[in-house]
Design a protein around this nucleic acid. Sequence first.
RNA 1: GGGCGCUUAGCUCAGUUGGUUAGAGCAUCUGCUUUACACGCAGAGGGUCAAAGGUUCGAAUCCUUUAGCGCCCACCA
Length: 879
Amino acid sequence: MLPPTYEAKKYEDGIYKKWESSGAFKADPKSGKPAFSISMPPPNATGVLHLGHAVMLALQDILTRHRRMKGYEALWLPGTDHAAIATQNRVEKELAKEGATREKLGREAFLNRVREFVADSQDTIRNQIRRMGASCDWTRERYTLDDDLSLAVTEMFNRMHEDGLIYRGYRIVNWCPRCKSTLADDEVEHEEVQGNFYYILYPFKDEEGGLIVATTRPETMLGDTAVAVNPKDKRYKKFIGKTIMLPLLNREIPVIGDEYVDIDTGTGALKVTPAHDPNDFAIGQKHKLETIRVMDEEAVINEQGGPYKGLDRFTARKKVLEDLAGLGLLQKTEALFHNVGHCYRCSTMVEPLTSDQWFIDVNKKFIVKNPKNLGWKKKEATLKELSIHAVKNGNIQIIPDQFNKTYFHWMENLRDWCISRQIWWGHRIPVWYCKDCDEIIVAREAPAKCTKCGSKNLRQDEDTLDTWFSSALWTFSTLGWPKETEDLKFFHPTSVMETGYDILFFWIARMILMTTYGLNDIPFKTVYLHGLIRTREGKKMSKSDPSTCIDPLDMIEKYGADSLRMSMVIGNTPGNDMRLYEEKIQGYRNFTNKLWNASRFVLGILEEKGVQEEPKIGKLSDADEWILGKLNTVIKLSDEGLTEFRISEVGQALYDFLWNDFCDWYLELSKGEKQNPAVLYHVLKAILLLLHPFMPYVTEGIWANLPGQKSMLIGHAYPKTDGKKYGAESIQGLIDVVGKIRHLRAENKIDPAKKIPITVYGHKATDDLARNKADIERLARMSGLTLMEKGAKVANAATDVVNGIEIFIPLSGLVDLDKERERLQKEIANLERYIGGLKRKLDNKQFVANAPQNIVAQEQARLAEAEEKLKKFKSSSGS
RNA sequence: GGGCGCUUAGCUCAGUUGGUUAGAGCAUCUGCUUUACACGCAGAGGGUCAAAGGUUCGAAUCCUUUAGCGCCCACCA
């Protein structure tokens, strides 16, 4: 016999081991079943599982288990991501504690150190994913730095280069001086900071006066190569072509005219620093200005900065301002709130600067080899066009659909993607330079000699690729691409991509871009974006502030994985954030225990009756019909709901069915004489199957005790409705009557232990009630139920009416009759108000004329019922 | 500066295409050793669905405006 309280801890690990060793998670492309596949968003190989992972694991496991039970060959492919900058930062921090740096260690030693660290944390993550109950196929686990996946990266780089989509350019990029690397546009986080607007006088060289420019970053003036004004600006037009003497460095720079300059912003005169501002860079290109970079990779002023050399950018700013003030050139300083870019990995202020980098051209046409897959009608396309087309055309469905707009907006405004990073941890860029003739060689393998001059004096590019380059290939690189593997053919495109909406751009968009290009196909059919888990106060859970964080492993330890899963999944609708706190998890722990005990009760009956295997269902009682009908409804809702990704709704429906229908009524009714072990078995079995995707552990644990079930639950088919119609009225009537009696007892404070007689009148409904008389008496704790079609009103009784049935509880000696009369008057007033409303509605000719017939009939029926009820109340109250 | 979302009971949230007197869980209150479960059982109180206007026979639901909160995007110095 099962113990009275379910202790998740005692069962979970053992159950997971059985699943895994039985091969239940393994997917076979040759099974002959239809394919269903999910690529697990690979957690960073940097540490521990957090709630963000936990929620995605729960949702994906629900979908995977449901489809597996539905007869799909379900593959859920797990893996980890090397997470270039994030991982490198972690290890660098560790090194810093030891007083070391990566430079001191050297490239190879440093990479070994990172590999050690990654191996450790990968192990941790694997076990944590298992503890969540994730039914993923571990035999196919992948890592972005696996040989096969690196091969895919190199192949893709080469193909894109051959198509002219990857190019090297001297451009202005986002630079993180702490990471000493470039960042992609969306890796820059804009944050409003308080800064200052400095107005500086730039004197003319050959005459009196000058132009006043305004800037927030005065230190960049060291790299100024022009001052620009709008040619339409009447104030300044005449100065175009004149020469300015750049203060501090006394360098001559021209005044130029450019439409870009906004007459009304600042002073209307713009200092132009092509090397340190993207707009200025564009102006510089247009006017063929010199580009003078004044900072090095750590944002320290270099030799171009003359006397400021060696100062970091903020110290330099102070010094520059002091010197300008000393010269009387600093005209005024104005406080200004403005947005400044910060590194998304380390929050350091980003410095725009020029440098040689590799880019993906998103606007260049290439030939689409296999346009049919995507329904693309032209021969050529740009990356941008194809990515937009894949979603616009309906090939990819995004849930919730309001994110379509966000996606399109982002894609339409996408600029070339800078993919080279000046860090060591990651995929080394497959490019070699000839030291003798400067030839650039892009290749799949290290070339032996220069393709142009034959020199063997080559060096590989020092840089690595943006981590999102390799993750963008994830759905197909993990299945073997570029090889035409069985897995790739069968499982790609994947069925669902399930993830938080926070990585829509970083990842989802880039997967679409790479897949539509590389495979001329979509990476997934449906994108399901779940809401982010927040704290009780609605704040983001932050790793830097552990007090706001709920650790999923703690919760699993305390309440079990099933409870945690339910708490994250119910109430979590796509795109909407959800708050989570411990009491919620506790609530689902209680639910888990409820299931456990309901099962314990049923199993006890089965044992008592000597049930050895699943019994055949024979004759049905009213209660049996009622619960089987409810079961059909909940099966239909669950199956359709999970197919249509309404996961929260299904979880809620199952919760209600188990607790309210099955436990509160059917099991209570089963305590009477009409107990039916076959139906108890059948419904419990269905409940376990239906709840299994949500709560895999406890359902599997109970299943093992179900007599006659020899194989594990995980491999069983999802329940189907039986197509039969069942009668529900008599039990519904019973529920209503019992409810009313309980209510009357409580209202009148009748001692719960006291068994009292009750009289019920009511048309043919009494036949149904008579069949279940004993049950009503037991459930409502009565000594005798008198059922009559009609009769004289019972004096001195508490009374109520439901479904045309009148209920009388004789009160003499039990309670205060005045109080009961008062209650009744309140009921009558309430009812009269209700009837008034219905009458007004039905008297309204517009309503009768315009509303659909069934609605009008419905309102009429309601009115009739209410009036009948009122009549009975009035006669009982003696008025 | 653009775009999106949210506002329903004390708290956290459901509410499908407009159609019962708007629901659940938690919390609160009143009771209960009722032979699975106190991680339980029975009952109760609690909401003019953010505000105003509109469409409609009928609005929490559709439209407009307003307010508050939150998020995303953006190279105005």
